[in-house]
Amino acid sequence: MPNQQSQIENLTDSVQRRLGLQQAQTFSPEDITGDAIGRLLGLRADVSRLQRLFDRSVEAGPDLVAGWNREEHGPVLHALRRVLDTSMVVQRRSDGVPKSFLPFAPEFVGADRVSTIYRDLGRSVVEGLWGRPCQAELQTRIKNRVNEWRGRHPLGMLLAPLCEPREQAQDRTPCHLKAAIESDESLGAWVEEPSPRTGMRGCAPPNRSPLMSRSRP
């Protein structure tokens, strides 16, 4: 069994390297979306006040709620915390404080420790799959839709103003997936191939992928 385990790990590692995926060993899929949104919009935010909502210390209430009345507002803050616990929190620290949130509004994508929390996973999406010259229109459409989100979700509407936007530092290292697509003709052709149904690129059926065809004799 240990031998099989290591074989599987080696296989996973090989596929990751082949595809140029970065840091794919442990991640939350929702954070791929979050990171991709942060990169696509060039917008992240200071989510520390959002995290503060989970702080149970005495001074948190007055800091977060105007006209704080512990007896009246304490249960309301508690109810809001429970709502967030069950609907918005993606990753937590060991003390229970959230590290990342679902991006119901783009402001919920944190600006701190991006490469640790989000593991740069959004780069593969934004620079690799959507970074082709022909994807400009698609990117614009996604940006427009995401920018609407804070008006489409009550939590986005309520909490986005708590998160102050911050400039995003640009990555200088190359994106592995982008490099892999550029260096591998067949992988590049597969990414470029329009889906027969939607006409979108990067969505060709899996059985047309170069990875699948190479596994055949």
Partner: peptide, 22 residues
């Protein structure tokens, strides 16, 4: 409980952070 609170967010004045209102 049996009560309903309207939740909103008010921007902070003079550089103070935004705060919720219940």
């Amino acid at each position: 409980g049996g009560k309903t609170y309207r939740a909103s967010c008010e921007p902070g004045a003079n550089g103070a952070p935004a705060r919720l209102r219940f």
